[in-house]
Design a binder for these strands. Structure first.
Lengths: 146, 146
DNA sequence: CGGACTGTCACGCAGCGTTAGCGTTT
DNA sequence: TAAACGCTAACGCTGCGTGACAGTCC
């Protein structure tokens, strides 16, 4: 199967925009979006005759989703899997067995997310502590001068 | 000048340990510590005759300091500068002018730290929001099955 | 037609992980 | 002496940034 195909176009004819507009809209660099393509994370719905990547709103949603995932520190590979997992679940029911598998995956990502949040909190605490230390240094040395 | 020389040994004869023990104590990998050396960030106080890096408690403190700095997202280069800045201030007073320069640097790092903390908070918020989204997906699909 | 936009290499960078092959310490 | 431990290359990996050079769009 092709890495991460966009699900069914929602309704009317999808607007197709080039990478530049897509980039501006989601707030990612063109280079980043191309990289996501190369990595098989988000494959544009189509190409122009000349070879330009064409993105739909659906693609934009995925890009936005990935942008939101980034702070969780997942690798592109992991995000790719999560995306396909979500898509698969959102699409057809398939076998009950398959559903179970994908639900499991989703749950695993949920746990991973919580773990990430935990370490983000730790990092924040450490960072704050360190900032304090810095300020103490500053005050100490400032006193002697002023 | 040698990148980041360890300041004066505090009191008695410093215990000198090899990289393995140092690594275990501060909770950094051997490879990381070697990398910090190569980068001129933390140069071991001495070498054995055979060429083994020998670290003192003072070195350990620096390693621990760097470990605490990491969550702030500074580059090794920046941390190196910050270390030397702190050392310089802690050591001799030098010229008033020099003091001012280094105090300025310290202040700049303080601001940078605050900025980092801000973005860490943002990331945390985004991460939490995303975790929520994941859980909603989970519940939605779980209902249909259970 | 021209200028903005996009395409594909392909190298660079941080921060280590990971062999590989070979000395050092104890 | 041998088991641990360490050393120096040197390549690998992730996630893009940054050209360079050429084709596409409007």
């Amino acid at each position: 199967m092709a890495a991460t195909g966009t699900p069914a176009p929602s309704g009317g004819q999808a607007r197709r925009m080039q990478i530049g507009e897509a980039a501006e809209r989601v707030g990612l660099s063109i280079r980043t979006i191309r990289h996501y393509h190369d990595a098989g994370l988000i494959v544009p719905s189509a190409r122009s005759e000349g070879g330009f990547r064409l993105y739909t709103d659906s693609d934009l949603h995925r890009l936005a989703l990935v942008k939101r995932m980034k702070p969780l520190g997942f690798t592109l590979e992991e995000m790719r899997e999560l995306l396909t997992t979500i898509d698969t679940l959102a699409a057809e029911p398939r076998t009950d067995g398959e559903r179970a598998v994908f639900l499991d995956r989703l749950a695993m990502y949920g746990e991973a997310a919580h773990a990430r949040i935990g370490s983000l909190r730790e990092q924040l605490a450490i960072a704050e502590g360190f900032a304090d230390t810095l300020h103490q240094h500053l005050e100490r040395h400032t006193q002697q001068v002023g």
